[in-house]
Design a protein around this nucleic acid. Sequence first.
DNA 1: TAAACCTTT
Length: 672
Amino acid sequence: MPSFSSGAPQHNARRKQLIRQQRKSLPIASVEKKLVEEVRKNDTLIIVGETGSGKTTRGKSHWHHSASKRVAEECNDQLGKKVGYSIRFDDSTSNATRIKYMTDGLLLREALLDPLLSKYSVIVVDEAHERTVHTDVLLGLLKKVQHSRSIYADKDGKNLSNKQDLSQSLTLKTCQATKFAPLKLIIMSASLDAKCFSDYFGGAKAVHIQGRQYPVDTLYTYQPESDYLDATLVTIFQIHLEEGPGDILAFLTGQEEIESLERLIQERVRQLPPDSSKIWTTPIYSSLPSEQQMNAFKPAPAGTRKIVLATNIAETSVTIPGIKYVIDPGMVKARAYNPVTGMESLIIIPVSKAQALQRRGRAGREGPGKCFRLFQECEFDKLAESTVPEIKRCNLSNVVLQLKALGIDDIIGFDFIEKPPRTSILKSLEQLILLGALTDDYKLSDPVGKQMSRLPLDPMYSKALIVSSEFKCLEEMLIVVSMLSVESIFFTPREKLEEARAARKSFESTEGDHITLVNVYRAASECLEKSKNASAKEKTMEKALNRWCWENFINYRSLRHARDVHSQIQGHVQQMGLNLSSCGDDMVQFRRCLTAAFFLNAAIRQPDGSFRALGTGQSVQMHPSSVLFRTKPDCVIFNELVRTTQNYIKNITRIDPLWLAELAPQYYATED
DNA sequence: TAAACCTTT
């Protein structure tokens, strides 16, 4: 049973000192004037806002005072027109928009068409501390753009040598304006460590904004806990029986852990004394249907304590009201990448100090709280300061392709805020050459590389679309890449496994998972067509589709998403002039096309029944979710290689091994 | 006979 100690005195002293430093700075409302002044004085400003400082809700809509007084005045009158937002499938902006909220990924896409981001005079990067791949690439790009625009602005665009200087650093084709204003940058971060951003931007000034957080007591265990799930269970009941009222938030690593802990809690509830107060558990994780997610935000009935079992989603993405107690087992599920094999996997690892602080902060939003860390205090000191940025632990093919398309040729020499492993970059360059996106001397190829960089897809999927146009089955491939680009399409609840399996049977193709996905997509479209004939109302149609998904054990949200991706990509390929052809019933033709597109992911069956992935030489198994599981194809292509208890391949189609040498001779001609 | 942490183009 875990027993807890309070944080050691020296730790408290350190915190107190920190708090004293922060008191010198003021909450955002009273520093507005100062911020405006700082933005005017500095080209780049780092704003460090503690949790609860209100920087996201107030900061964003207030910095523009510095950009133009006139805009600010008008803004007060016509907020709807001057302020807009733009996300992947939804754009509310117009020519009148002065302030645009958008995602980092979308701004990167815009940069492909307008490399100097000439529309913008001030760019605010929010949540920079999260260090997603997009944030890191964007920061590198913005630093470069800022430099280029300052050269251009200084010389007023009249000096030819400077123009060349500029076009060397960035493709200048679309930039016809004669004069650029300097680009102002505001980097907003919640981390206490502003130094890395400041150093990166040449010693840029950092302004700290105090947070409005209530004190949170931090408790550690006296001994190491070998089973954090059991320790969480015990701690939940310890709090419930010994502490005052207030809801509990427990951080777990995934859906399965959450579900099993929920069952364990329910079992133990029965052992409680009959007169003790009630508890109500509510899970929250991203793949949970949104109606069920909303439960976590509802207040518990009177006399009942709410226990929220959450993944990382509750760390930053959502804030659940009423939380007084946080349980932090100190573990997280994170993406990992092996650049040698090119394999991504999910592993459970200890959290960073920054993550632990963020989790603790969730207990102090509405009043003083308590945070129970299920590890010893000496273990906290051993944790990494901050989470390893994503760019260091993911496949970089898309990043490399984007940078190449932006005219940045020296990827290894690119000024990243933190450099990804050299081997990751080399692996991606190699893959892009094999896909034909880059020439042998690492230049973006024309038209293939250019076309691929315009498509918002995994480079291998982009290539598949181009190939399929030649094979006259673009229509089928468009469906496949859309379905492969979203979360799992099939919904298989543990308690209805047999029913779900039976439902899937009607879509199954003996050739493999790709054609099965096409069948699902087409059946869903047919369902929509039918309801369209019955009623023209969009709402009714969506309802019919939702019901159809439910009956067929299809994940509605995933299918909806796949349809959005499909229509977006369809627009792109039509613009590119690709021929929207169908192979009809000729499935041999389609499988040959899959072979030509995904030849890098081919696998041959071994005498022992396992497979050998030809690209990497790894020994792999068919994943039990494949429709080909329990069949014995000699040769297959696949789209995913995941490592869990074993190396598994998923999304598999059987092919003729002879097709490999015929359709990908550049890769397989030398092999037998 | 397995099991997807979070985003996002």
